[in-house]
Every structure is written in C-alpha cells, then in structure tokens.
Design a protein around this nucleic acid. Structure first.
Lengths: 234, 234
DNA sequence: TGGCCGGTATATCAACCGCATAAACGCGCG
DNA sequence: CGCGCGTTTATGCGGTTGATATACCGGCCA
C-alpha cells in the first residue's frame, strides 16, 4: 500500500535574505514535513515559482533587490496560491498594504514556529478545497472528474480500487502523452518499485477490464510497446 | 479607499461580550460598508448564524457562557465560511489551537481597525472565489436543510447526535464529491485527530443506522475504499 | 512456414488490510 | 442514579493486492 502522506507533500517557496533565518525556516519546515525551496532574491523567487510551481509562498519583506510588494502583485496576478508575508515591520500600514495587494496573511517578527506552521496549515487546507475544481478529462464515453473523485463511463459512475484510481489519475494528468513504466511505478508505488513492471501489467489489465468495452482492443488505455502507457487524448 | 460596491454587501456576525468593543466594531464595520450582526453569547451567535447565514464570523474569545473554541468547531463543521478570531490573549498556544480547529485568522488585541478591515477583506475576497453550493440537499427520501439544520427521512425529521450532525453536514456540503478521511476528521474533530480513522468508521456506522434503510447496502452514505466517504448526489 | 523469443496480457488463489459491527467503558448532566 | 453520548476495544468479513502460472502476439530468422 502506498504512503498516504506522500500524496500530500507540499513544496513551499521561502524568500528570505537573512541566512540565519533562512536556515531556521528550512529546518522547521522540513521537520514539519514540507519541502522548502529557498530563494534569496526576488529574481530567484520568480524563477523558482515558475519552475517548480510550489504550493504557496512565504515571503520576507525587506529584500535587497527590490520591493516585496511588487512580487506579491506579480504572483497574485498569475496564481491563486496562498502568500504569507513575514516582516520585521510592525506598522499597521505595512500590513494593510500587503494584505490589500493580495497577500493572504501577515506575520510580524518575532513569531513562534508553531504559529507559523499553524498559519501555513490554514492556508494549505483552504487551498486544497479550492484547487480540485475544474480538472476534468474526457474522451468519448470515458469521463474523469478529479474534483469529485469520480470516473464515469457512458455517464454512469464506476467503481475503481484505490490503486486503479491512482493509476488512472496519473495517466489522466498527462493525457495524450506517453508515460514510461518507470514514471508510473514511481508515481503510484514509489521509487523502490521502479523496476517491477510486472505490477503495472496486472493493474493495467484490471483497469482495462473496467474501462474498456473490448479490453483486447483498448480505445483509451494504449500500450506503447517497450516504453509505457498512454491515455488517448481527444 | 473605495467602498465595496452595493451589490456585494456582506453580513458579518460579530460575537463580542464587551459592550464598548462591540459598539466600536459595529461602527467601524458599518462605516466600511458591511452589515454587522451582533451577538453577546455563543447561543445567540449560533442562532444568528443559522438564521441569517452571514458571510463570515468575527469571534472574540473569552465569552462568558462557554468556550469560543467549541463555537469554531461547530461552525466549521457546518460551513466553509471564514472565521476570524479576536483575542486579548497573546499566547502562541491559543493561536495555534484556534487555527487548528478551523479558524482562518487570529488577531491579537490591541489591533488597528485598518488591519482588521484588511483581514476581513482578504477573507471575503477569498471566499468569493469559492462558490458556495446550495443550502439544501436531497436525494430520494433523504433531505437535509443546512440552513435550519434539519434532517428528514421520508418527510419526517430524525434525531441526530451533535457529532453525527456535524459529520452529515460536512458531507452534505460537499455532496456528490469524495471527502477524504483527513478532511472529515479535520473538520469535525480537529487537526489533531487527522489520523484516527477509526472514529470515522464508528460514527459513520451509526449515521448509516439512522439514515439508511439497509445499512449493509448504503444508498446515500457511500464509502470510497482507501480514500474516504461520499454522500450520493442526485 | 514454423519455431523461437522478448514483451505483454489474463487467470487463479492466498494473504493482508481496511472496513463494519457489536459491545463494553467513561463521562457529563439532569 | 440512570440516561445519552462519545470513546475504546474486540472480532469477523470482504475487497484489494500481489505471487505464480499460463496464454498471447508480433518480429525475426532459419
């Protein structure tokens, strides 16, 4: 059985110029089960944001190379992900300005780790509710709602096992493109199972039995010989 | 600063026992274009919440007639609307506890009006993105009124324990969609109970005993193996 | 054409894990 | 004290999973 917590590992972008605080944040976040990405400057932050697409931003104001507010505005324009601002400044005006520009929360230094973690949790919790909203995949009679966690065939829901569901979601997220055996095994079973293509065959078979009208001549779940599998695109 | 347009006038429930602060909040909020509803006690608050369905809750901790935390848990179990906590207590533990139980923000006294307004704006802004769903749920003989908190089976109201009620409301709010064990535990028991799935099983069983005609073959309360539960949609 | 072979699909079955249910316990409250 | 409710403990059941075995299918070559 796969690890449940592995599914909800969040990547957090931390923008902080002070090396000491940066280390402190890195350790705390990692200890709490997150994957922190560290940036020292706004430019670096923007790069990482686009590159890694972290779940949220933790931004320390007062960076050397520019105004933190501009980063908030920029990111808010592109994404709905949570932004939490840390700052040494206590002034109400600063807070109001940040919040108005699109920040979701503002935490003044000095703060406790526990409060920081709690506020991160709040932000992520809320985001998860909104996030899976309009992700939907459809080809012919097969329809996959990631939001509802439902898979429909000719309109009526069909029942998948957790593993089959994971597998199908994985394919649906890269619909139309080939996913290699290794990729699928890595994503569904974990890194240790990367070579056991055997598992894949079995469960692909079971998936086809439920999804395909004629499993011997699959219309949705295409096998790419010697490479992997692919979910047909519209 | 411009006012929110008249089209989006928001009703805010303010729970505050100190008359002076209450007046102050009332005036400030009204001046900012909101419609404040005032409550002195938890009972009153609960009543107004069900009655008027305000857009969010602003809760002062330390009320005379009970624990504010319980109100947070109760409301969070029934609704996704924002909860902002005000408190004289500065301790980190208080903050963490509130945030874990489902509060969206925590503002320690003394605070400035502008910051309060900014944080309210953030909460409402975010909420508007999430579309609230219908306040009534019905499938076949099962009918749930989220507004007045009534559950009917074949037309006649049936009695649920507070916990069963919370559980069912939570499911009804996301009717048709799978709710994970973690989500349900977080919403009903709190963030600390996120891993105790056995609580869920037991109380789901009791819910089914009251709701389902044949609990062994549930029609409304569907279990999604390895994932969570789902209230069947029409 | 027929046989071999790598890669792939299906069948069967046992072990295990997650789930449901029952029943006992503890606690607050009238 | 007895009642209602939430928690804890115990136990049986069924679905899911993965191991093993067997059948398939196309390409290649003699």
């Amino acid at each position: 059985m796969m690890n449940a917590s592995a599914a909800s590992v969040h990547t957090l972008l931390v923008v902080e110029d002070d090396a000491q605080i940066r280390d402190f944040l890195q350790l705390s976040l990692r200890a709490a089960g997150y994957v922190p990405l560290l940036a020292r400057t706004l430019a670096e932050a923007l790069q990482l944001w686009q590159d890694k697409q972290p779940a949220m931003l933790i931004l320390d104001l007062g960076l050397p190379d520019g105004d933190g507010l501009s980063l908030i505005k920029t990111l808010r324009a592109r994404s709905d992900r949570p932004i939490l601002v840390l700052s040494a400044r206590q002034s109400e005006q600063d807070k109001v300005q940040c919040l108005n520009q699109g920040a979701d929360d503002y935490l003044a230094k000095p703060f406790g780790v526990d409060e920081l973690l709690a506020r991160i949790r709040v932000a992520l919790r809320r985001m998860e509710r909104m996030q899976l909203r309009d992700q939907r995949y459809q080809v012919e009679a097969l329809q996959i709602d990631l939001a509802d966690g439902l898979v429909r065939l000719h309109g009526e829901a069909l029942h998948l096992s957790p593993l089959e569901y994971k597998l199908l979601m994985q394919l649906a997220q890269h619909a139309g493109r080939v996913m290699t055996h290794r990729q699928l095994l890595q994503a569904v079973w974990g890194a240790e199972y990367v070579d056991d293509t055997h598992y894949l065959r079995i469960h692909m078979g079971r998936l086809r039995a439920k999804i395909e009208r004629d499993p011997a001549a699959p219309r949705y779940l295409i096998t790419e010989l010697g490479i992997g599998y692919r979910l047909a695109a519209s």
